[in-house]
Design a protein around this nucleic acid. Sequence first.
DNA 1: TCCAACTTTTGAATAATTCTAATTCAAGAA
DNA 2: TTCTTGAATTAGAATTATTCAAAAGTTGGA
Lengths: 141, 141
Amino acid sequence: MERIEKYRSKGLKLTPQRLAILEYLDGNTSHPTAEDIYRAVKKKHPTISFATVYNTLQALLEMGEVMELTIDPERKHFDPNTTPHHHIVCTRCGKIGDVFVDYSSALELPPEVTEEFTPISNHIDFYGVCKKCNKTKRRTK
Amino acid sequence: MERIEKYRSKGLKLTPQRLAILEYLDGNTSHPTAEDIYRAVKKKHPTISFATVYNTLQALLEMGEVMELTIDPERKHFDPNTTPHHHIVCTRCGKIGDVFVDYSSALELPPEVTEEFTPISNHIDFYGVCKKCNKTKRRTK
DNA sequence: TCCAACTTTTGAATAATTCTAATTCAAGAA
DNA sequence: TTCTTGAATTAGAATTATTCAAAAGTTGGA
């Protein structure tokens, strides 16, 4: 997600807006939504539009430079780390953490499934409570 | 998902519309969207509204009688089978299959994750290609 | 430096889902 | 069986996330 050469060579035109988005995403492990990105980039480029964020994300998706996460039923999250990994979500605050373990060898599918589907990959959503929320009193109701 | 007594005893008022939704969901393994349910129930209750489908789904969610699936980035799918299980999605047609295997014991989390999160549960999305799509020629672009 | 092709922008358009207010109804009480 | 009331249904408006369209502005190779 760093060297800008990589993007130009893949035919991506590098505008200031895109550079700002790339910079924001580089090494970012916060799993931002489109809105998170929009708000962050807006600080340096107050005129940037949502469409530009979505356009750029679309381009990066097609280049395989970001992944779309479907963990959150309300909105898409994006992950610039495209090496295969899993996620853990705090069920109280929604914080998303990374899990860099390859469980594939342990995930054998039963015959009734492999008869119907040829498996290709997998992704695990772990659910739990983060440290901060564990300290906080659970809201009563 | 069957005995209607269960619902009444939990304070759910049983209207004809709700009974039709319950009947449609009972034993349904197609992982329908709200629209799938709306269209199906509409056959018997032509005046049913989307709001009723969403209301009922909300009530069933709160009762723990259906699960919301986030596999599809475009829309929510619902599963009346609330016993813990996983899913496999056809990356070509979107068909969703069930995987009734408990992999929990194989899904140990590394310390850097358990330091930050107290894990509670997990759900695996498997991705693959279904039998039907495997037969079909892949569309060339 | 020039210019075609690609981007950005604004605002409108979609699509999924939620909300609102008025009307209707389920089901326990009488 | 009828009454009563809180809950459910409905139509349609409202919201929210995301996409699209057209005009204006830029990038980067020639």
